[in-house]
Amino acid sequence: MSIDKATVAKIAHLARIKVPEDEQERLAGELNQILHWVEQLAEVDTEGVEPMTSVAAQTLRQREDVVTEGDIRDQVLANAPDRAAGFFAVPKVVE
C-alpha cells in the first residue's frame, strides 16, 4: 500500500486538518515510511497467537446502571464560544 499526494489531501480533509499543498508531498513520504515500518511487522509469524488487546492482562471494566453524573450544565458549557438558553450555539448547520 502506498500513499500519494491526493490521498494525503483526502485524509487531511476528512480529519479537518488544513495541510497546505506544498507540504502534501513531504507528508506522503513520511506516511509511506510509517506504513512500510508497520508492514515489516507482518513478516512475523503470528499463526495461532491471540490478538493482544491490552498490555496489561485485564478485562473490560463495567459500571452499574446508576445515574452518578450530570447536572453540571455550567461546567459543560464553560468553554463553549457561544451559548443560549442552556444550549451550545454553533454556526448554522442545515441539510
Partner: peptide, 9 residues
C-alpha cells in the same frame, strides 16, 4: 431556534 445558529443539546 435562531436565524444563523444551530442550538445543540
Amino acid at each position: 431556534q435562531h436565524p444563523s445558529k444551530t442550538y445543540v443539546d
